[in-house]
Design a protein around this nucleic acid. Structure first.
Lengths: 229, 229
DNA sequence: CCGTCTTGGTGTAGGAGGCACACGAGAGGA
DNA sequence: TCCTCTCGTGTGCCTCCTACACCAAGACGG
């Protein structure tokens, strides 16, 4: 069976830049390509968009198929469509970026990929296609957006300590922040709710756990206030 | 002649949200559709991406063909691809937004459109397809980005008065700004170069002209300083 | 049991920058 | 000459940002 069109049409894929946080380093999930072109090279998870499938749905499906990831924060990044970016012909890629709690998602290959692994996001291996450009674009977007949208929480478990949250911001922004100022500013927004629980670290004093309060964030957003780290 | 593929492929279009500034109101350029579907309705300028054409190039070509616009500031906005957004079948639209100096570009229909007109960007007529959604997305992006990127200058002629610039920001942000504070803040960035020329308004005192200094902006950007209105 | 190690948690003072605010200047037209 | 209109300018207050250091709580080992 074949599909015929009067004019040539590009193929369309949805690819994902999945970020996770490994201790204090920002990581990106890559899959080893099982097929030519770039067989054996590392690439972003993704694949062709089906005819009756929304773009974001395609991205989520590919993540589930290739890496077993479901229910993650996912947002459209940019669309890459230069002729020649894929040796097979004209392929337009709608790129997404995703944030996951890495601890909950150890790398495991899904049915469609030879291997799946986390890599340091700022020191990736050589990538297939123009995926290095896509990754760089995603890093830039993440760095820009984390400052005024509550993305940082997506990289952490539902209950987290303020030190962990600070680590997230430091990893994403690539800077070090003052502990007292960070806590003061964050608590002033009233976006995190302190819990009556503590997290026992390997060594040192136990730390209080907090939870992100999405309802309060929406209220803040509606009132025109803007959250800024 | 027909093109056959093993799997069905979506058609891909590039559509543009073109903003201009008419006195103190933000305007958007729309074209009247000459063909079904939505024949006679207003729509964003745009059209199909050719096989060997980059996405942005397609957007620029359509703007030239449909509205005679060339050499404008253009940036990718978002990609819209829900099944069912076009009654002809699966169509994925890579949307761009553009900023032009409206005074230099009176509306005139190009070869491919029945009519071209400027409309108030916040009170558009009913639009074809999901173009109202695309316009709303563009407005939101513009409002967000104008605060930290020097987009405002793209809506003005190369030589402008500070009052005109303030009007741009007020139109885009939808707020009123204090004249003294606006000037103080802007001049502190050293991004506009005062000229030894004046603009004579219809009535009132003549105003000094300024020019945006792109080189200084790049330097500022490189030094990690961020421009914020 | 006590000392040491490690991480958690807290307050203040000084300075920069945002914001609110009013009036004289220059030009044209009546 | 006077009226009207737009341009252009400075200050004071108050908020928020930043820089900075020490005690607390628990674990572990000697």
């Amino acid at each position: 069976m074949a599909y015929s069109y009067r004019y040539p049409r590009p193929a369309v894929t949805a690819d994902c830049v999945v970020f996770g946080l490994d201790e204090a380093e920002l990581s990106v999930l890559l899959v080893e390509r099982a097929e030519a072109p770039f067989k054996g090279a590392w690439a972003l998870p993704g694949g062709f968009v089906r005819q009756e499938e929304a773009l974001e749905a395609a991205a989520r499906r590919e993540l589930a198929e290739e890496a077993g990831l479901t229910d993650l924060f996912l947002e459209q990044l940019y669309t890459f469509g230069d002729p020649g970016r894929d040796p097979r012909g004209r392929v337009i890629t709608v790129a997404y970026y995703a944030l996951v709690r890495l601890a909950e998602h150890p790398a495991r290959a899904g049915s469609d990929a030879a291997a799946v692994r986390w890599f340091p996001a700022r020191r990736p291996p050589p990538l297939a296609f123009d995926h290095a450009t896509i990754l760089a674009t995603a890093l830039e977007r993440l760095r820009g957006k984390v400052r005024y949208k509550p993305l940082g929480f997506e990289l952490l478990p539902p209950k987290f300590t303020l030190s962990q949250l600070q680590t997230v911001y430091e990893a994403v922004l690539g800077v070090t922040l003052d502990k007292r100022n960070f806590r003061k500013k964050l608590l002033a927004y009233d976006l995190v709710r302190p819990l009556d629980q503590q997290l026992q670290p390997k060594v040192g004093r136990p730390a209080r756990l907090y939870a992100f309060d999405r309802a309060r964030y929406r209220r803040l957003e509606r009132d025109g206030m803007l959250f800024e780290i």
